[in-house]
Design a protein around this nucleic acid. Structure first.
Lengths: 343, 343
DNA sequence: GTGAAAGCGCTAACAA
DNA sequence: TTGTTAGCGCTTTCAC
C-alpha cells in the first residue's frame, strides 16, 4: 500500500512537498505538483485517513444519526447531507438507529470514538434536556425537529425543520375548505412530546378556528410510527367511525397505509374519504389517486443543516433555528365533502 | 481530551501497561487493571480510533458501498448488514453512490482510506473484469448480484443473490399460467450486461418454454433505473401496445410506477393488465391492489454477506457464492387473461 | 508484570 | 520553492 513516502521517493522530493502538493498548498511549483499527481496515479496512492486524522487538530468528520431510517422520507435528506458535507470538505459518518432509539446517546458515542467535529440528528425527540445533550460535546443540529418540549437554550444548538404546528394547521385547513368537518387525524400519539403532539396541536387549532368542536375520538393513534401500525389502526378506525369524511395524516408513509386500509374497506378516495398528509416522499407521487400532501423541502433541509453546522465549526457562526416551508402538492386524494343528508 | 498518556501518568504506570490493560492482555495484574479502569472512568478517557487504526495492521471495519441508495429495496439490507457487523465485532462503514456510479473505484478508495478489511457492494454491475477489481485488495462480496457477464474467477470473490434468470422465469411463468401471452417486460435495458439483461433472459426462456414467440417490441426499456423513468416509459408504452395483457417488472419500484401509469390511462389492474415483479419492498404491500411479487429474503441477504466475509477474514474460510430463493407473495395484480375475442 | 522505545502515515513548523 | 524533523495517540516488540 503506497504512502506519501513512496510518492516522495518516486518523485525524488521530500514527503512534506508531497503533502503540500496533495493539500493544495500555494507554495508548490506547478511542475512538482504535476509530478506528484502523476505518481499518485501510477502508484495508486490513497491517503490514509487515520494518519491524517491523528495529526490534524481536528477531524473533518460530521456525524449523521438517523432515527428510524426505514422511513423513506429520510433518504433524500441523507443524500443531501452527504453531498453537502463533501462539497464543504467534510466527511459524513452515518449511523442508523431504530425508530425508538436513543439518538443522543448513540450520537455522543459516535462523536467520541470517531472524533467528530459536529453532529446532525435526523428524526429525533422534541424534548431534550440540557442534561441529555451535555454528553454530545460538539455543535449539533436537530434536523426535521425542534426542541419544543424540552428546555434547551436556543443558543446551545441549531435546528432545521418545518413549523409542525403551522403546517398541520395548513393541511387541515385544506380539508375544512373543502367542506369537511368530520376530520380524523392519523398519528403516532397525541401526547408523544414530539412530532405527532406538535402536529396534533395544529390540527386542533385549525378545527377551533373553523368553529368545529374537537372530538377526541377522531384521533387515530398508531402507537408505533410505521406503515403496519397505521394500516391496522385505520382498518379498525374506519369501521368504528364510519362518519368521518377526511383524514389528516402526519406522514406520507402512514397516509399510504391508510389509503390501502380504506380501499380494503370498500370505501373510495376521495369520494368517501379525503386524505392529506405532510412529507412528499417519492412514492406518494405514484399512489392512486396521487396523494395530496405538503411537500417538505427535503434536499434543502439537509443542505441547511450542514451549512449551519459548518458555519458554526469553521467561522464560529452563531447557532440558528431555521423554519422552512412546505409546498402544497395537490393530488387526487382531497375532494369536496358530499352532503350526506340534506333533508 | 484524555489520552493513554494521561491515564499512565495518573496511575504511575507506563503507557504500554495502560494499553495492555485496555486491550485485555493477560499479563496485567488485577490491581493495575483496576487502577487503569478507574482512571479511564474518572478522566473520561475514550480511545482515539485514528491512532489505533494507524498502528494496527488492520482495522475491524467492513465497507458497504450502496449503488443507487434511493432504491428502498436496499434499506432493509443495509440495516441487516449493519446489525450483523455489530454482532460479529466489526464496524460498518457505509458509502452511498448514485445509481450509475463506479462502485469498484469508490470501494477501493474506501478500503484504502479507511483501512477496511473487507468490502460488501450492494447493487453493483455484473461484468467485472479481474482488472477492475484488482484495486480492491481485500476480500469482497457482491450483494444482490453476481459476475455473470464478467470474467472473475469464482474463487476470487463471494456473492449473495437470487438466481435472477430463474426467478424472472418463475415470475413470467405465473403470468403464463394465468393465460397471458402478450406479456411485456419492464426493465432498464435488455442489454445492460447486468440485472435487467439477466432477468430478460429468464423472461425469454419462460416464453419459449410456453411456445410463445418473442416479440422484441414487448420490452419496455426505461434506460434509467428509477420510478420516474418507468412511469414515463409505461405511459408511452401502453398507448403504443394496447394489446398487452400483462407486465413483468424487474423491480417493485418500477412496477409501482407502472401501476400508476396504467391507472392514469384508465386501464384496470388486473382486469385489463396484470403485473408481477421481483423484490417485495414494504411499500408494495400497500398498493391497490397489493402488488404480486417475488419477495427477496432481504435481511438474510445482508446477514449472509457479512457472515461469508467475516468467515473469510477471521477463519480464512473459502469464498462462496450463495443463491437464495424468493417467496411468491400473491397480491391482487395478477389475474386470468380475459378472452378478448372468441369469434 | 512492567517499562522503554520504535514506528504506523501524515502535517506543519522551521530551516535552507 | 523545497527539505528536515518533530510529533499526533496508540500498540507492540524487547528488555528487565
Amino acid at each position: 500500500m503506497a504512502t506519501i513516502k513512496d510518492i516522495a521517493a518516486y518523485c525524488n522530493v521530500a514527503v512534506s512537498t508531497v503533502s503540500r502538493a496533495l493539500n493544495d498548498h500555494p507554495d508548490v511549483s506547478a511542475e512538482t505538483r504535476r509530478k506528484v499527481l502523476d505518481a499518485v496515479h501510477s502508484l495508486h496512492y490513497v491517503p490514509n485517513n487515520a494518519a491524517r486524522d491523528l495529526v490534524l487538530p481536528q477531524s473533518d468528520s460530521i456525524g449523521l444519526v438517523v432515527r428510524g431510517a426505514e422511513n423513506p422520507f429520510f433518504t433524500p435528506i441523507i443524500r443531501a447531507v452527504e453531498k453537502a458535507c463533501e462539497d464543504l470538505g467534510y466527511t459524513m459518518v452515518l449511523h442508523q438507529i431504530p425508530a425508538g432509539g436513543d439518538e443522543v446517546g448513540e450520537g455522543a458515542r459516535l462523536v467520541q470514538s470517531k472524533r467528530l467535529r459536529g453532529l446532525i440528528m435526523l428524526g429525533g425527540r422534541y424534548d431534550y434536556t440540557s442534561d441529555d445533550v451535555s454528553a454530545i460535546g460538539v455543535p449539533f443540529v436537530c434536523c426535521t425537529y425542534t426542541n419544543h418540549f424540552g428546555d434547551l437554550d436556543a443558543g446551545s444548538f441549531s435546528s432545521v425543520s418545518i413549523d409542525d404546528k403551522a403546517e398541520a394547521y395548513r393541511a387541515v385547513k385544506q380539508l375544512i375548505d373543502n367542506g369537511h368537518t368530520k376530520i380524523a387525524i392519523l398519528l403516532d400519539s397525541k401526547t408523544d412530546r414530539s412530532i405527532s403532539e406538535r402536529r396534533f396541536c395544529g390540527y386542533c387549532e385549525a378545527l377551533a378556528d373553523a368553529g368545529i368542536s374537537l372530538d377526541e375520538g377522531l384521533a387515530c393513534e398508531t402507537v408505533e410510527f410505521n406503515m403496519g401500525a397505521a394500516f391496522a389502526c385505520v382498518e379498525r378506525f374506519i369501521a368504528e367511525r364510519p362518519d368521518i369524511t377526511a383524514i389528516f395524516s402526519v406522514a406520507d408513509t402512514m397516509a399510504i397505509a391508510a389509503m390501502k386500509a380504506i380501499a380494503n374497506a370498500g370505501r373510495t378516495i376521495p369520494d368517501d374519504i379525503s386524505i392529506i398528509s405532510i412529507d412528499g416522499i417519492e412514492m406518494s407521487l405514484y399512489t392512486v389517486p396521487t396523494l395530496t400532501t405538503l411537500v417538505q423541502p427535503k434536499a434543502l433541509i439537509g443542505e441547511k443543516a450542514v451549512e449551519i453546522l459548518v458555519d458554526v465549526l469553521d467561522n464560529g457562526g452563531k447557532t440558528r433555528h431555521v423554519r422552512l416551508e412546505t409546498t402544497l402538492r395537490p393530488g387526487g386524494t382531497v375532494g369536496r365533502v358530499h352532503s350526506v343528508d340534506l333533508a
